[in-house]
Design a protein around this nucleic acid. Structure first.
Lengths: 157, 157
DNA sequence: TCAGTATGATTGACACATCAAACACAGGAG
DNA sequence: CTCCTGTGTTTGATGTGTCAATCATACTGA
């Protein structure tokens, strides 16, 4: 009896490779711009963004991890590097002294404020300006479909 | 006088974030599968693929770099790790002894052969099966538009 | 009370990526 | 032949990401 097709055909594979390679290049180019414009990595930016959106620029470490969608270990390493550069501080949590409060330091606040506009400008230049409005919508739809499918296959994030 | 809009609007920004974050997750998930199914990283796979497509499984280092689209330094580091695992060998080039010939080693040939099917299956499961045919076409179009735009802005790759 | 376990976070080891500097040979000018 | 410069490749330093193991504190049940 006939089985369902196992492997992508030529056109599907080409679409896959173009898609994944291009998004990779895009990520790299954008990271390079962010770095040279502002001295921040995308990770730095994500962390500072999350902290900036809170009331007092402070957040539990695990909440921050959930917010940016990282594993705790990854966050911990990254925070170590950011702390060395004085972008954030770590304090013991008052309510649960296992936990850590991550606090946005002055240098971090400044760096983020000055990074926002250049970063958004780069997003516009490299992504928004490259696509038609219909393509932007399609991109959002594709992202949604991919993510939903991943979740269905058992990947939480 | 009125200026052209500088920054992405709310919807564009959301599309951007969904798009870039989802492709990132997809990359990570696929890399994890490849790793656990075959013991190869995406980089390993790309290098082995390029070598496998040559006549004799050998190639100049700089040609290989162009083929996989990497900087030479990155390739050199990666080849060092692959050589340790006996996936490839390095030989001096006959014609120009500055250059290196990269040779596909038996273990590399085997590893690649056994990785192909699982890898393509994963691509189908995670990408092709998630999208409608129209979305796959749209994805290819988006990739093409993004890449062309990048080139126009002066990024070779 | 006090084991035992669960939870929040960190650590260490290693693979991967990027940049700048170094190294090694080739090829040409004198 | 010898210096000079260009090209192919490697190296070192540092930042980033993942996994497994660990540490420290909180909680729970006998």
């Amino acid at each position: 009896m006939p089985r369902t097709r196992q492997l992508p055909d030529r056109a599907e594979l080409r679409a896959w490779r173009d898609f994944i390679e291009t998004t990779e290049v895009l990520r790299t180019v954008l990271a390079g711009r962010l770095q040279s414009d502002t001295g921040l990595s995308p990770g730095d930016y994500a962390v500072l963004l999350a902290l900036s959106e809170t009331e007092h620029g402070r957040m539990r470490s695990s909440e921050l991890a959930a917010q940016v969608g990282w594993e705790r270990s990854r966050l911990s390493h990254h925070l170590g590097r950011m702390e060395r550069r004085q972008l954030i501080r770590r304090e013991k949590a008052a309510t649960d002294s296992r936990g850590a409060q991550i606090v946005l330091a002055p240098a971090g606040r400044t760096a983020f404020r000055e990074a926002t506009a250049p970063h958004l400008r780069a997003v516009r230049e490299l992504f928004v300006d490259a696509l038609t409005p219909a393509q932007i919508e399609a991109a959002a739809g594709i992202a949604a479909a991919l993510r939903e499918h991943l979740v269905r296959l058992g990947h939480r994030e």
